[in-house]
Deep mutational scan, measured.
Amino acid sequence: FSITQFVRNLGLEHLMDIFEREQITLRVLVEMGHKELKEIGINAYGHREKLIKGVERLI
């Protein structure tokens, strides 16, 4: 299971460039909250919320 699959499953594949540029893996994403996601350029609250909720389902 990769970050690419995870992001695609959430319908947020347009954010993949950010994850690749910042070298974010699923392991790193698990540790990130709204503040960190915003810092790397994910400005939409809804997108950040989707990512965080998606990660919570993985754990």
Rank of each mutant, 00 (worst) to 15 (best):
F1P: 11
F1A: 10
F1Y: 11
F1I: 14
F1E: 10
F1R: 05
S2D: 14
S2P: 08
S2W: 07
S2E: 13
I3D: 01
I3M: 13
I3N: 00
I3Q: 01
I3F: 10
I3H: 01
I3A: 05
I3T: 05
T4A: 14
T4D: 14
T4S: 13
Q5L: 11
Q5Y: 09
Q5A: 12
Q5I: 10
F6K: 01
F6C: 04
F6A: 03
F6E: 00
F6N: 00
F6M: 06
F6I: 06
V7M: 13
V7G: 00
V7C: 11
V7Q: 00
R8S: 14
R8W: 08
R8I: 13
R8K: 14
R8V: 11
N9D: 15
N9M: 14
N9I: 11
L10N: 03
L10K: 01
L10I: 09
L10A: 04
L10E: 04
L10F: 02
G11T: 03
G11M: 05
G11C: 07
G11L: 03
G11W: 02
G11H: 09
G11D: 07
L12K: 01
L12I: 05
L12M: 07
L12A: 02
L12S: 00
L12G: 01
E13S: 13
E13K: 08
E13I: 10
E13H: 09
E13W: 09
E13Y: 11
E13P: 09
E13G: 12
H14L: 11
H14S: 11
H14Y: 13
H14A: 09
L15M: 06
L15W: 04
M16I: 15
M16Q: 09
M16D: 05
M16S: 10
M16W: 06
M16R: 07
M16K: 08
M16T: 10
D17M: 10
D17T: 10
D17A: 13
I18Q: 04
I18D: 02
I18C: 03
F19V: 04
F19M: 06
F19G: 01
E20A: 10
E20T: 11
E20G: 06
E20M: 11
E20D: 12
E20I: 14
E20N: 14
E20K: 10
R21A: 09
R21D: 05
R21M: 06
E22W: 04
E22A: 09
E22Y: 10
Q23E: 07
Q23S: 12
Q23N: 14
Q23T: 08
Q23R: 14
Q23H: 12
I24N: 01
I24R: 02
I24K: 02
I24S: 01
I24T: 05
T25G: 06
T25S: 11
T25R: 04
T25L: 03
L26Y: 07
L26I: 10
L26M: 13
L26V: 08
L26G: 01
L26F: 12
R27I: 10
R27S: 13
R27A: 13
R27E: 09
V28Y: 07
V28W: 06
L29A: 02
L29F: 04
L29Q: 02
L29C: 02
L29H: 01
L29N: 00
V30R: 12
V30C: 11
V30L: 11
V30N: 06
V30W: 07
E31P: 08
M32R: 01
M32S: 04
M32L: 08
M32K: 02
G33K: 08
G33S: 07
H34I: 02
H34F: 03
H34V: 03
H34S: 04
H34P: 04
H34W: 05
H34E: 05
H34N: 03
K35R: 10
K35H: 09
K35A: 10
E36H: 04
E36S: 04
E36G: 06
L37I: 03
L37Q: 05
L37R: 03
L37P: 00
L37M: 09
K38T: 11
K38D: 07
K38S: 10
K38L: 13
E39T: 09
E39D: 12
E39A: 14
E39G: 11
E39V: 07
E39R: 10
I40M: 07
I40K: 06
I40W: 03
I40L: 11
I40N: 01
I40F: 06
G41V: 03
G41S: 03
G41L: 04
G41F: 04
G41Y: 03
G41D: 02
I42F: 04
I42E: 01
I42Y: 00
I42M: 05
I42H: 01
N43A: 13
N43S: 14
N43D: 15
A44M: 11
A44E: 15
A44C: 15
A44F: 12
Y45A: 11
Y45H: 13
Y45N: 06
Y45L: 09
G46L: 12
G46E: 15
G46A: 15
G46F: 10
G46M: 12
G46H: 15
H47G: 03
H47Q: 13
H47W: 10
H47L: 11
H47R: 02
H47E: 15
H47S: 14
R48G: 01
R48W: 05
E49T: 08
E49W: 07
E49L: 12
E49V: 14
E49I: 13
K50G: 05
K50I: 14
L51M: 05
L51N: 00
L51Q: 00
L51W: 02
I52P: 01
I52N: 00
I52M: 09
K53C: 09
K53N: 09
K53I: 09
K53T: 09
K53R: 13
G54S: 08
G54Q: 05
G54F: 05
G54C: 08
G54Y: 06
G54M: 06
G54R: 04
V55T: 06
V55D: 00
V55G: 06
V55E: 00
V55K: 04
V55L: 11
V55N: 00
E56D: 07
E56L: 11
R57V: 10
R57W: 12
R57C: 11
R57A: 15
R57D: 12
R57E: 13
R57L: 12
R57Y: 10
R57K: 14
L58Y: 14
L58D: 04
L58T: 05
L58C: 08
L58S: 03
I59L: 09
I59P: 13
I59H: 09
I59V: 12
I59G: 08
I59D: 05
